[in-house]
């Protein structure tokens, strides 16, 4: 896939970091404001997709990236299930129980394990959307050959 003009490249490089940080903000404040893992993860994936679209990439690089993103995704979703299982070991013996201290409502560090779930789900969603995007791009590259 070819890149775009120098203006697009430069602007996207400037914007991508900003979008990335905004995604992290949405994920970390998931238990306080609207948003959370899915929305933030989608934004983070958007930052990566913007960079790839603007700068272009060879099929070889894309294949390397897709294995990385799919590994990250599997690892993150595995961590979510492990977190859910961890609550079987701590405190009350139930699945998905909130075993950490709850803290004050409205604080950043509160709500027990929910921010942790948000973080891992954010990584998972970012990885998954990036994987889907890369897979479709690779399909298209291969069929246009």
């Amino acid at each position: 896939m070819e890149g775009m003009s120098i203006i697009v490249k430069k602007v996207s490089q400037l914007l991508a970091g900003l979008i990335f940080v905004y995604g992290i903000y949405i994920i970390l404040h998931g238990h306080l404001t609207p948003g959370g893992g899915f929305a933030g993860g989608a934004i983070i994936a958007g930052a990566f997709i913007l960079l790839i679209l603007a700068n272009g990439s060879s099929a070889l690089n894309l294949k390397k990236e897709i294995s990385g993103s799919s590994n990250t995704e599997s690892l993150a979703i595995l961590m979510v299930v492990v977190l859910a299982m961890m609550s079987l070991a701590f405190g009350v013996k139930v699945f998905f129980s909130n075993f950490l201290p709850k803290g004050e409502p409205g604080e950043l560090l509160s709500a027990g394990v929910i921010p942790l779930y948000n973080i891992f789900i954010g990584i998972e969603v970012a990885g998954a959307i990036l994987t889907i995007f890369l897979a479709l791009v690779i399909f298209k590259e291969e069929s246009s050959k």
Partner: peptide, 12 residues
């Protein structure tokens, strides 16, 4: 995304 993937494969 599943449908899109299948559609692209079908196109090929």
């Amino acid at each position: 995304s599943m449908l899109m993937a299948i559609a692209i494969r079908l196109y090929r």
